[in-house]
Amino acid sequence: MAALLEADKLEAFYGPSKVLHGIDFALPEGGVTAILGANGAGKTTTLRALCGMIRTGGTVRFDGKRIDGRATESIVRLGIAHVPEGRGTFAKMTVDENLRLGSFTRRKKAEIEADFEHMFAMFPRLAERRHQQAGTLSGGEQQMLAIARALMLRPRLMLLDEPSFGLAPLIVQDIFAILARINREDRVSMLVVEQNTALALELADYAYVLETGRVVMSGPADEIASDESVRRSYLGY
């Protein structure tokens, strides 16, 4: 399968300190890839590096074209939607306005309106709260809004940073079921960062394990999930 996104010796820096030490990975078109690892391993930093939100080294190719060093907004325009850590909703704006902002790069009114309906069908809770400020939503609803806003870009690739963080197990189940559906039905490729390893390995086809800014192992998700020694040494469960 041709890689949709390819990172080669990717490095990332916060000021002078290097936190990613040259990692390599490839995301297949249409697939779900997981990045796992303990707190502080560099998972969030990896996603931020792909979107040009911090200083990087190495190369990143999307669809065969170099995107490293480009401005975030121009990377986003290629169809890469990032659902950031902490969700990044516009707290003082309504649900409706958040979704409208998600469609900022698009111009075809009819298609955008159709996508609004699509989102409200997928997330009925958001439809009920359409005119409410995003800051007043519950954690689960905010995560749904963040995902829906990312989808309004009509992305080819979605980067998800700990979509389960801080949510009740039942809501997490819902959200992961929806992500699986989006991947299957809308053919959106995904890169999911998670500390909830079991859940992520269920959704993903392939996984990379990070430790202090390095890839320490990778493989098909089901193999990693069934390899007890890997789980013990790297994933802690």
């Binding site: 986003v76 909703t89 707290a91 902002l101």
Partner: peptide
């Protein structure tokens, strides 16, 4: 308006604004 909304977004939350493609 689309640009008016984007201007408000950029003032409120520059990082999220870039992530939806707004040139802040």
């Amino acid at each position: 308006s689309r640009i008016g909304l984007a201007m408000r977004a950029a003032a409120q939350n520059p990082e999220s604004s870039r992530l939806v493609g707004i040139p802040v």
